[in-house]
């Protein structure tokens, strides 16, 4: 269950438009430690598709996405 994953840091990017949440995630991942788990809350339609694709391309670990009330909680682990 994604809900039970231990999250190191949560970014609330709800209300921000594409590419805001994606760029914010890139910024946070860069400064995070290897092993950190980042959750990003986003309400924009682009991020929902872009973030998992970016995670794969950047060779990080995509843990999952939960669709909550009007927004998504996307969880990513920094592995390199």
């Amino acid at each position: 269950m994604i809900g039970n994953v231990d999250v190191t840091r949560e970014i609330d990017a709800r209300g921000s438009f594409c590419p805001g949440p994606m760029m914010e995630l890139i910024r946070v991942i860069r400064s995070a430690q290897i092993g950190d788990v980042i959750a990003i809350l986003s309400s924009d339609q682009g991020s929902k598709r872009d973030i998992p694709k970016w995670v794969t391309k950047a060779n990080q670990e995509f843990i999952g996405v939960e669709t909550l009330d009007g927004y998504d909680r996307i969880i990513v682990k920094k592995v390199r």
Binding site: F17, P19, G20, M23, I26, R27
Partner: peptide, 17 residues
């Protein structure tokens, strides 16, 4: 109304990253 970041702030952020 939707408080969209300005085109310029979006560009500055992209350039920084």
């Amino acid at each position: 109304e939707k408080k969209v970041s300005s085109w310029y702030d979006t560009l500055l952020q992209a350039k920084e990253l």
